[in-house]
Design a protein around this nucleic acid. Structure first.
Lengths: 130, 130
DNA sequence: CAATACATTAGAATCGTTCTAAACTGATAT
DNA sequence: ATATCAGTTTAGAACGATTCTAATGTATTG
């Protein structure tokens, strides 16, 4: 509790009631993949009614501070990942579920990037049966 | 022209005026990445005013028949790819541009998929500087 | 060439997300 | 403590991509 406030302050984020609740859920030590909607539902279950606008604001604030990663998985909605380390994912479209791949993977045979462009990062998405 | 109508019929698609125009643009031999909006703009420039609803319908019809691939690149809009072979991409967020990677790449070090799941396909997205 | 099943269309509806502007609250200085 | 003020929350409006609706049009079949 004290440490979450401290954690937010360390990241130049005022520890408001709402941000403390959201941060303590997101950063409880278990990596998560959330959308605004799934987070809102989870918070409702925890009896913390936080407006959708605040949820969007907070996810973006955390993202801006590098506390969350944005995932481009699906054109329907934006996914945020609490694991900001470079890593890859399994994705099950059927279950709309993401699973972290935390082992080291290598991609070989990569061609040269186009002129004047540098490779920033390589993202591997492993699609599971439908 | 004759062959495009034939091509559409072969794919159980009635060769309407609009579908012929869109197909002859999309499948002219040069692979393309389009969104409903970029396709609409291109068609307007070609003086072919086709309603947005038809563009969406047609893209989805072509997708259903396996003539287009859907790319999950970005949560803002849906990208369709005329290259339906298994391949990978460079992506420049800054330019909002995709570039095909047609060489063979290998991903090594992949962990086992979760129980009862099979790997369907592996997609590699190479992000270019910002 | 009539019948009909399928397509196209404008505009309305939908849905995720962002914006607005008014009310609120944490930090700071007094 | 308290007033001040910048930063935050919120409901609801607005937005933009996409889908739906239902009326009109057209390719196919007999």
């Amino acid at each position: 509790m004290k440490d979450i406030k401290h954690f937010l302050r360390q990241n130049s984020l005022r520890p408001t009631k709402q941000r403390v609740i959201i941060a303590s859920y997101l950063f409880d030590g278990v990596n998560k993949h959330v959308t605004a909607e799934t987070l809102s539902n989870k918070l409702l279950k925890m009896k913390a009614g936080i407006s959708l606008a605040t949820i969007y604001n907070t996810l973006h604030d955390f993202y801006e501070k590098g506390l969350l990663k944005k995932l481009m998985i699906n054109s329907d909605r934006i996914y945020f990942d609490t694991n900001t380390e470079h890593h890859h994912h399994f994705y099950s479209k059927k279950d709309q579920k993401l699973i972290d791949i935390n082992v080291d993977m290598k991609v070989s045979g990569l061609p040269k990037p186009p002129k004047n462009k540098k490779i920033n990062k390589i993202e591997v998405l492993v699609h599971l049966d439908n």
